[in-house]
Amino acid sequence: MSTVLPLHEPLPRARPARDAEKLATRLRHQMGRAIADFGMIEDGDKVMVCLSGGKDSYTMLDILLQLQKKAPVSFSITAVNLDQKQPGFPEHILPAYLQSLGVDFHIIEQDTYSVVSRVIPEGKTMCSLCSRLRRGALYTWAEANGITKIALGHHRDDLVATFFLNLFFHAKLSGMPPKLRSDDGKHVVIRPLAYAAEDDIAAYAQAKAFPIIPCNLCGSQENLQRKQVKKMLDAWERETPGRIETIARALGDIRPSQLSDPKLFDFLGLGGGIAAMPAAGVTLPVWHEDNAPAQAP
C-alpha cells in the first residue's frame, strides 16, 4: 500500500489581519446562531472538540474558544485527537499547537490503521470503516470522561453534500443533522459549523496559518461518491452563486405534506368524497404553479 509521508502541509501566505477578523466575526455569528437554534451547548456542559488536524476542526476549536469567553452559559472545552498510528503521522504537531493555546486536550492512541489495512483490499477506499472505528474510540473516551457533548467539524457544505449522497445513492431524503443523539442513546453529537461555508473556513484557516495535517497519510483514495457530489455542487455554485446556501436553508424548511412519505403525513386521513367537503364559507388553500406537484414526464 502506498503511503504519503509529509510531516506538515504548509498553508499559503496568510491574509491581512483585518480580513481574518471579518471572517472571524462572520464565523462567530454563524456558530453562535447554530448553537442557539439547536440548543447545542447548555450550562455546565463538558464539550469534547474532536480535532483531526484539518481546517474544519481547527476552525471549530478556534471559534468555539472565542465564543466561550462571552457565552451566556458556562461550559468547558477539551480538545481530543485520535492518533490512529498511520505511518508518517506527525504526532508532535497537535500537542505542540494545543499547548501553545493553553487548552485542555487529550491524545487517544489506538492503532485503527492496522485494522483497516488488514480488512480493506489495497486500492479500495478506507474511509467508511476508518470512520466507524474512529467514532467508536471517541465515544468510548467521551463516556469514560463524563463528556456531555461531542463536537464535530462538519460544515454547511458537508450537510448539503450528505443530503445528495443519500438522495442519489441510497434513495432516501436524509442528511447530517446539526445535532443528534447516538444510536446507543449515550452521546449527543453537535456540529457548531452547520451554518458556515467551506470557503469561509478555508480562508480563515489560511489567514490563521493553522498547522494542517493532511488526510492522505493512509494512502486511501477519497470516497468517489462524495467526490462526485462535490464536483456537481461546485459546478452549480459557479453557474448560480448562492445555490448551496439556498439548498442549505431548504434543509431547515421541510414540508411533509408536500412529499410522499405516509409515515410523516397522514395522507389517508385527508379522506375524500362528499363527507370530506368543507363547510360553507371555508376557503380552501389555493394551489399555485410554483408549488404544484411535478407532472410525470
Rank of each mutant, 00 (worst) to 15 (best):
A194M: 02
M176N: 12
V160L: 08
G153M: 00
L165I: 12
V188C: 13
H187F: 07
T162Y: 05
P177V: 04
R181P: 06
E143A: 15
K149P: 09
F163E: 01
T162W: 00
L167C: 11
K149T: 00
R135D: 14
G175L: 04
E143Q: 15
R181T: 15
N166I: 08
P192A: 04
F169K: 09
H170L: 14
A196V: 10
V189F: 13
V189W: 07
I147F: 07
H155S: 02
G175A: 12
L167T: 08
Y139I: 09
M176E: 14
H170K: 15
T140V: 11
L193E: 08
N166S: 10
N145Q: 05
R156V: 07
L165E: 14
I190T: 02
S182H: 06
L165K: 15
G136L: 04
R191L: 03
H170A: 15
A161K: 03
R156P: 02
T148W: 01
H155M: 05
G153H: 06
D184W: 01
L173A: 15
L180Y: 13
R191V: 00
L133V: 07
H154V: 03
E198V: 08
G136E: 02
K179R: 13
L180P: 10
K172P: 11
I150D: 07
D199C: 04
A144W: 04
N145E: 02
P177F: 01
L167N: 05
V188I: 12
R191I: 09
G136T: 08
L133P: 04
D184N: 03
A142S: 11
V189A: 01
P192H: 00
F168V: 07
A197D: 14
N145R: 04
V160D: 01
F169G: 00
A144V: 05
K179M: 10
I190Q: 00
T140C: 14
